[in-house]
Design a protein around this nucleic acid. Structure first.
Length: 517
RNA sequence: GGCCCCUUCGACUAGCGGUCAGGUCACAACCCUUUCAAGGUUGCGGCACGGGUUCGAAUCCCGUAGGGGUCACCA
């Protein structure tokens, strides 16, 4: 039997990591067995429908490399793939159920149902539809419906006995039928509810394995009842563990960043997101933790899905991302992907491709996301960078060394890594000073900061000319007088000190001293 | 609250009757080092609890506790 899986998101907002998660496992399960992976849009809720959502979710799957074999965009043998375009199909199937006596029309108003629930809550307990509409004779149902009276269609469920669903990962799960209270399958607006639509579509589209999140387990008996009412063969149910917020509740927008677009904008790579998601509930038989889609597909075994309740830990996602950026992907690849982020940051990259490659090369061990590469790259693309506080101190302390190195550098014949390195080491040895005494002022002059890639790397990448210019500029800056250079900053500093004095906490002094120890 | 699911270090997990309970992230220390990273080494830290079954339980069974999901004309 062909393995057919599907992902069936609702177009209600940002592409959700949970959708990517279930999509990944659906995709891999299908591909493992040479089957098809279908994308179907569950847009039966007109209240929550969002215009751009479908396109963005589809784009997310493309970005992730989880290409659907059939979708609203590409079409396929079971088109249409939007439930809102399949209304006739659902109607047809509801009619069959009506005819066979498996369903009935119910005419209670929303108010009446609310009242019923309030009443149930007040006295007894069991919440849910009490089946009051069942007693209406079919002819009466017909008549009132024909007269245009608003109504829903409900599935007639057994009052006693049990319904057992088989979950591939959990085994048999048995529910008392009295728990299943004649669910609505067709809404008064003529749209099907999820229960009806999912069963009809999955059957018609030949879905063999229903991969979805665990939150659906309790509604699965309804689906089983529907399959039986239609006389259809049951698919296999695979309920994936629910992704969690750090507090263990169901992953939500409110408590976590669930938007794949958001991660994409931060410079998270699709490979990393996929790899990370895969480790949430699944592991390679050989224990490998870094693998791509293809490798996962080859080694996939649905029975290795673990049933814990995995917390979506952004820190670990970032770790995977960093791993891909600095180790797993070739430099050229990382650079190509970093370029849009550099451009977005407003840098003029010029047309020296090797230069960008060099920059990304030294920056990638220091970045966890593409965005961070861009954040750290400023001084590589502009001469106008400011000197931060630490840098100013270094410049002030290193004036003589800067002048000397400027001289040495300008006379340097072999301007490559070893040449620059030798020159600097010779100078340091000559002067009998610590490396830092020379390197830090240089770093400050070259970058305006006190933390950066290696100084020799910087000089080689920037080139002789620019390096000399930067040293020159720093020297000029020193001459101009450090403290008053940035009046705004000076004012802020003064204010901060005043503030600190007021609260009687000479914090800065204390921390500076402890550091010096 | 009813029903259902889940339970190995703070997090993700390996384990499927006999292991010093392994790995990864995070955290800490050290090494490397001109800074920040990266990298290397080491450390910290766990089988929720109670009963069984068994020569032997993280592994099997029962119970308890805890966590979560679900009880809509939302999916």
């Amino acid at each position: 039997m062909e393995v057919v899986t599907r992902i069936a998101p609702s177009p209600t907002g940002d592409p959700h990591v949970g959708t990517a998660y279930v999509g990944l496992f659906s995709y891999v399960l299908a591909k493992k067995h040479g089957g098809r992976f279908i994308f179907r849009l569950e847009d039966t809720d007109r209240q929550r429908y969002q215009e751009q959502s479908e396109r963005r979710i589809l784009e997310m799957f493309e970005w992730l490399g989880l290409h659907p074999d059939e979708s609203p965009a590409s079409g396929g043998p079971s088109a249409p793939y939007r439930q809102s375009e399949r209304l006739d199909t659902y109607r047809e199937h509801v009619d069959k159920l009506l005819e066979s006596g498996h369903a009935y029309r119910a005419f209670e108003t929303t108010e009446e149902l609310d009242e019923m629930r309030t009443e149930q809550k007040r006295l007894g307990k069991p919440l849910g539809y009490d089946g009051r509409g069942r007693s209406l004779p079919p002819e009466e149902q017909q008549r009132r419906a024909a007269a245009g009276e608003a109504h829903v269609v409900r599935l007639m469920t057994p009052d006693d006995g049990t319904t057992t669903v088989v979950d591939r990962l959990r085994g048999e799960i048995t529910f008392a039928n009295e728990e299943i209270r004649d669910p609505v399958i067709l809404k008064s607006d003529g749209y099907p509810t999820y229960h009806l639509a999912v069963v009809v579509d999955d059957h018609l589209m030949g879905v063999s394995h229903v991969v979805r999140a665990e939150e659906w387990i309790t509604s699965t008996p309804i689906h089983v009842l529907l399959y039986r009412a239609f006389g259809w063969q049951l698919p296999e149910f695979v309920h994936m563990p629910l992704l969690r917020n750090p507090d263990r509740t169901k992953l939500s927008k409110r408590k976590s960043d669930t938007s794949v677009d958001s991660y994409r904008r931060q410079g998270i790579l699709p490979e990393a997101l996929l790899n990370f998601l895969a480790t949430l509930g699944w592991s390679m038989p050989d224990g490998r933790e870094f693998f791509d889609l293809e490798e996962m597909t080859a080694a996939f075994d649905v029975d290795r899905v673990s049933l814990g309740e995995p917390v979506f830990d952004v820190k670990k996602l970032k770790f995977f991302n960093a791993k891909y950026i600095r180790e797993l992907l070739p430099l050229e690849d990382v650079a190509a992907r970093a370029i849009p982020f550099l451009e977005e940051a407003g840098f003029d990259l010029g047309d020296d491709r090797d230069y960008v490659l060099d920059v990304v090369d030294v920056l990638r061990p220091r970045a966890e996301t593409l965005q961070e590469i861009a954040e750290q790259a400023a001084y590589f693309f502009t001469e106008e960078f400011p000197y931060d506080e630490g840098a100013r101190k270094q410049l002030a302390a290193g004036q003589s060394h800067l002048q000397a190195v400027e001289r040495e550098l300008s006379m340097l014949e072999f301007f490559d890594y070893d040449g620059v390195d030798d020159m600097l080491r010779d100078y340091v040895q000559d002067q009998a000073v610590g490396m830092g005494k020379v390197m830090m002022p240089l770093r400050a002059a070259l970058t305006g900061t006190t933390s950066s890639p290696g100084v020799v790397d910087l000089i080689v990448i920037l080139g002789k000319q620019r390096s000399l210019e930067r040293i020159g500029r720093a020297l000029t800056f020193i001459d101009a007088g450090l403290p008053d250079d940035d009046p705004q900053k000076a004012a802020e500093e003064a204010k901060r000190k005043e503030e600190a004095a007021k609260h009687g906490r000479p914090k800065q002094v204390a921390s500076a001293r402890s550091k010096a120890d």
